[in-house]
Amino acid sequence: MLSLLSSAALPLLRRLDPEAAHTIALKALALGLAPRVARDDPPALAITAFGRAFSNPIGLAAGFDKDAAAGPALLRLGFGFVETGSVTPRPQPGNPTPRLFRLTEDHGVINRMGFNNQGLAVYVRNLARLSDRPIPLGANVGINKDGADPVRDYPAMIEAVRGLVDYAVINVSSPNTPGLRDLQAEAQLRAILQAVAMVAGRLPILVKIAPDLSPDGLASVVETCVEAGVQGLIVGNTTISRPAGLKSPHAAQAGGLSGLPLQTLSTTMLARTFLLARGRLVLIGAGGVFTGRDALTKIQAGASLVQLYSGFAFHGPALIPRLKVELMAALRDAGFATVQDAVGTRAQELTEHA
């Protein structure tokens, strides 16, 4: 059956409002109207991170499938791993529409979705259907806009997803929930992570951080996470900054910017994080990955794994096999036998590209 997310269908989806197109794409995936890719990744792309084996380092970032509704299809598109969410304890509609904007000329996206999702009960029910999964699955958890108690809510969600996923992510960096980024401050983050540690068991816990952190703020987050026993960081979420030269008429919209305009900022932050972490944390690099060479740059900046969102939104499932072929070629051209060999090899250099 022809996939509704095939290359031929993508131009039609792009004519729609971005959120409507996303909803249609997600429903098509949930119905199984997507290609199934053979699981035969080259051994050179395999890597082990936080005790889990990944056949390739390219994953889907949180935000695409907030409710884990399309899990069976997403897990079979050729990704090395898939992260679902962000989910909140209670359902919430998110911010008023319009709240999602394509920056076509800039290969970027601005969103101010506001953690729209159906809540933890629906999310857990959907995760429970994914016990027979071919690749690692992650859960990304956030808090409600109203009535939230982070020290209560984050542990409750981790406890609910434990046993259903291969890792979980504490999201304290979305710019679209008032006050959320304040939770990256040392005292607040430490309290959350100490509470989460009480219920996590053996589930690897990661923290997703903003690319807008100050140098001192980043150093504080790294040390706080290491002290709390966190296994890794995702660097990073969307940015509230706007780099010079954006061409899209939507560039002034409020919200978090992702895609190609985020690439340099997020990669610089990733490299700085790698140097601060000194091997104590596994890093996942996100922000502006559109080619295999982009993926390799993230890996050389210090990422063991990389994530896509905007690239997948722009190019669909056909991007995934192409990225893996390009990443293999980029590794060979750079003289690396495996992904693991390349991790962090340009970190110092890439911190100087701010």
Rank of each mutant, 00 (worst) to 15 (best):
P155A: 05
I205D: 01
A156F: 04
L218S: 01
A139W: 02
T224F: 02
Q307N: 10
A342D: 06
M1K: 15
S131E: 15
R39S: 13
L323C: 11
L45F: 07
A38K: 15
E223Q: 15
V339A: 05
D41K: 14
L10S: 10
V82C: 11
S248V: 08
R133W: 05
Q263S: 08
S173Y: 04
R39Y: 14
G85C: 11
M198W: 11
E227V: 13
L180T: 10
R272M: 02
T345I: 08
G63D: 02
D67Q: 07
L283N: 00
G51E: 07
L29I: 13
P91Y: 10
L74S: 04
C225N: 07
S310R: 05
A334L: 08
T268W: 06
F336D: 03
P89M: 12
I284S: 00
D106F: 10
A318V: 10
P98F: 11
I135H: 06
Q194H: 15
T97V: 12
L189A: 05
I47S: 01
L100F: 10
L130V: 11
I205W: 03
V207T: 00
G63I: 05
P11L: 13
L262F: 03
E186T: 14
A277C: 10
G63Q: 03
L233H: 02
L31T: 06
D341P: 08
L137A: 09
N140C: 12
E352R: 15
F50T: 02
F101H: 08
G316D: 03
R39P: 04
E159D: 14
A271I: 01
L246Q: 08
N144W: 05
A185W: 02
V282F: 09
T97H: 10
G256C: 05
I158K: 05
I234G: 00
R90M: 12
N126E: 05
T264N: 05
P35G: 06
I58A: 03
F115C: 06
V306K: 08
T238V: 10
P42V: 09
D146T: 15
Q348S: 13
I24D: 03
R332W: 10
G147N: 11
T351V: 07
P249D: 03
L130R: 09
S3Q: 09
F101K: 05
V207L: 04
Y167W: 14
M198K: 15
P98I: 09
L189S: 07
V289K: 01
Q194R: 15
P175T: 13
V196D: 00
P35C: 08
M198C: 13
A313L: 15
A330H: 03
G302A: 11
N237I: 00
V87W: 00
S266D: 01
G259E: 06
R332D: 11
D212Y: 00
L265Y: 01
R152D: 13
D212P: 00
L74I: 11
L270C: 05
V172C: 10
Y154W: 04
S248I: 11
G229V: 09
H250S: 08
T48H: 13
A148Y: 04
P175H: 13
Y123D: 04
A295K: 05
T351H: 04
